[in-house]
Computed example of a mutant assay.
Amino acid sequence: MESSPGCIFVTTLLHYLFLAVFSLSLCEGMMVFTLFTKPFYNGFFHQMSFYMAVGWGLPIPIVVISVAASHDNYGLYYNEERWACWISEDNGAIWAFTAPMIIIVLVNYFFLIISVFKVYQLKMYKQKVTAEQQSKYKTARAILISILALLPLLGGTWILGLLLLFDSDSEPLAWIFTILNSLQGFAIFFFHVLRNKEVINVYINDSKSPEVA
């Protein structure tokens, strides 16, 4: 059985967007890591274009290679006598999604461990830190707290997804995975917008600024 063009399109889109979520989280980890380890570095790694290129561009070659390598059954996922538009497990194509996900989660944990160490180091040597360093560390620490709150949800959810690969008949596991996945968008909005003082301050200042005729 061959996959239809529509199913290939849906699977390609899902594959790309899911990988983009993780590659963008990698960019966030890189940004926090750079802010803590190189507080005065304002070069290429602080340019938004770099993060956008990595976040949205990194998944493209992975998806393209996956589609080219398993074109005949890419988009045919079989589970419990039902077909779905997703990456097939039969020929190992599913690892084109799971392998990058695992690598990115592990790299992000490395970035977070180093960043948390830098936070405690900053507290120990607080008197030696300049005002500019304090400002950058304060911003980075706020982002770090948000990532620490989100990573168990983002990473933990897809760990459940990996378990479903080996136990696809587990309905409770599938329900937990679905519910946690559906909460990710709200969690990102809550921690990165509602609890972000810089975003709130910008919104308040914009709302108070007089309109120019």
Rank of each mutant, 00 (worst) to 15 (best):
A93E: 10
N201Q: 12
I159N: 13
F189W: 11
S70V: 11
A174Y: 09
V119N: 02
I87L: 13
Q121V: 00
F177M: 00
W158E: 14
L183E: 08
H192V: 07
Y109A: 10
A99V: 08
L76H: 07
L106D: 07
T157N: 15
H192M: 08
N73L: 06
L163W: 14
I179S: 04
I60R: 05
W83V: 12
L148S: 11
L194V: 12
L165V: 02
A99R: 01
P152D: 05
Y120T: 02
V202S: 12
I60Q: 02
N201P: 00
A68G: 06
E198M: 05
A187H: 10
W86I: 02
Y203W: 10
A93N: 02
P100I: 09
Q127W: 03
G75D: 05
R195A: 04
P61N: 03
L76Q: 06
Y203D: 04
W95V: 02
D169W: 05
L122I: 05
Q184T: 09
V116N: 04
I143F: 12
I60Y: 05
M124R: 14
W83T: 11
Y74A: 01
Q121W: 03
I62S: 00
W95H: 10
Y74N: 02
W86A: 15
S182I: 10
S66M: 03
G155I: 02
V67A: 01
G75A: 06
I188M: 13
R82A: 06
W175E: 06
L122F: 08
F189M: 12
V107R: 00
F186A: 14
W175S: 04
Y137R: 00
T157G: 15
R141D: 09
N181Y: 09
W86K: 08
I204M: 03
L106V: 15
A142P: 03
Y203A: 15
F117I: 05
P172Y: 08
I103M: 12
A99K: 03
E80I: 00
D72R: 11
E89G: 06
N79M: 10
G156M: 02
Q184E: 15
E81C: 07
Y120R: 14
Q121K: 08
P61T: 07
P61E: 03
A174S: 07
S115R: 07
K118A: 07
